[in-house]
Design a protein around this nucleic acid. Sequence first.
DNA 1: GTGAAAGCGCTAACAT
DNA 2: ATGTTAGCGCTTTCAC
Lengths: 350, 350
Amino acid sequence: MADMTRPSTTPPTLEDVARVAGVSRATVSRVINGTRNVDSAIQVVVRKAIDKTGYAPNRAARSLVTKRAGTIALVVSGAGDPEDEDAFAASVFTDPFFGRVTSGMLGFLRTRGVHPVLMVADTERTRADVLAFLKQGSADGALLVSTHAEDPLPFLLAAANSPVVLFARPSRPIPVSYVDLDHQAGAKLAADRLVARGCQRIATVAGPHDVPASQNRLAGFRDAMARHGFPYVPIAEGGFTTDSGEAAMERLLAEHPDVDGVFAANDLMAQGALHVLRKHGRRVPDDVALIGFDDSSVALTCRPQLTTVRQPVEDMAAEMARLLLDQIDQPDLRPKSVIFEPTLVVRESA
Amino acid sequence: MADMTRPSTTPPTLEDVARVAGVSRATVSRVINGTRNVDSAIQVVVRKAIDKTGYAPNRAARSLVTKRAGTIALVVSGAGDPEDEDAFAASVFTDPFFGRVTSGMLGFLRTRGVHPVLMVADTERTRADVLAFLKQGSADGALLVSTHAEDPLPFLLAAANSPVVLFARPSRPIPVSYVDLDHQAGAKLAADRLVARGCQRIATVAGPHDVPASQNRLAGFRDAMARHGFPYVPIAEGGFTTDSGEAAMERLLAEHPDVDGVFAANDLMAQGALHVLRKHGRRVPDDVALIGFDDSSVALTCRPQLTTVRQPVEDMAAEMARLLLDQIDQPDLRPKSVIFEPTLVVRESA
DNA sequence: GTGAAAGCGCTAACAT
DNA sequence: ATGTTAGCGCTTTCAC
């Protein structure tokens, strides 16, 4: 075999450490992985040899035999604009919501020696890339955040039998694990607050009707309002953007100039509503109380700052990671779902 | 050898494809990697066998021999709060700036079959993790975005001889590649605009004086103003946050009530300034023209929308990725730097 | 408790 | 143009 004592440019291998320590590769491997009993005197010698050589185990070699990549895919999935391939990525990654997901997941993963690989799946081809990535064993599983209700990826992943955990329940029932928020409870929090403030003419700026989360928020809001004795709630639908919130608020104000309380299904639309209310001379919260949803960064940068419903996104993301790792360790675990409770963050707008 | 025809649960290997196609492993490998000439008739047979078996090359096995991970580390580095390990990650990932970096880099990488692994380095331990990750060969190089001028990681990475590219020039000279913005040119854009508008009493809300980018923006602004015949520019320093922008604007207004033009060193502070100006009954841009820096999301959600200096962050991130891949391919390439020109995005505030 | 040896699945000389 | 073969660096039976 190789009798050159120092290949010099090549990183040290197990073999090198073993030679320095005067033991076999197997023993070094054992102390590194903490498997089996290894004589403590030898442990010390080996550790010393590791330090001396500056050894770091080669991930590829290890993966090849353990069949574990030690990485998971963090996939952002949705419908991309075929005209502008980067537009989708741009909009999602600049959304603080996604930042909170990342941060929560990383917080959990950091202690587990597992690393997330970022992927975008917004076209046929990029979806195939994700599938291939998992099939190749480049990642042991996937965390999937879908921006689009009709996203086919959850199904594809489940069909490929890849470990996967979703953020939000899939629109069609699929046997996969997911975490979600109790959106209805969140809307109820807003309704309760508005009513408790003494608002009498309450309306809502709803999200897109084809998004399950919006549906649930709207249903929860109507339901809570009905219980408070308000069977009818004026609704204007928006598209979760500031502009659409402005337009919706304009419509609401035109038809119900006496409105004194508004629940917007997200903060961006609440911010739009705020602009319109100011423009029309309504003071917030004195004339009109306003509540948003998400506790995004705009909630803080608005003036007045938004009272809003907060999802524990970081906790949810951490739970996703936990569920995924469990599933990777025990492949025939049944899919599990975990539902989180929102909280009301009271600031200035209501 | 194994004479079981169908191991069934095991993913197909090169061997399996070769058997189905009736050729050798090497030939299959060649058609997959497109190396060498392979008879086109055989190519067809092999591709068919690949489809039939549903083969996907095992990344670990490939990495083991090619010594390429096919991934790079995207490292966010800074000084974390030891009390709250997740706070740092939270603040950086929710910053749209980082989202733009991610999106630009991904846009470039997506065509190259290279995937980014997300890492945070904000403590001694996490910095060691990053170093180990690279040493293990889990990633072929690192893209580093530092939030902290005194960050030791650029030096550590360079010393470890890892391929690395920085966003922004390191505060102490290190032989590494980086991309950066011509901050002075950006500030000049703002000065020119303010002067062209006819502003006569122009002040600036500067960024923290210990951040190189702020220093350059301030220097560039003063310089440009001097050339326009304004040797003295009132300055209030902020900390790049909305609140600090408010405080700085209050100070400016107290000392110079007649100010009619303001350059804020970032959009967040511009937003803070806007709040204060409105509070004091100043109309923007009629009474006071205001220019921000960054073209962040708040620039769009402010009313009036901010005129601001835009860094081509996505392009810069793409260039980082390009530089890194070049450096990985040609390890003894000399460090390179690429400086980008900012543009002025004219909206409503000036 | 420790070592010897057999692969994991792939690529790249080398031989043909 | 294609096949043969020797590893890449590691974990893991299986003997001892």
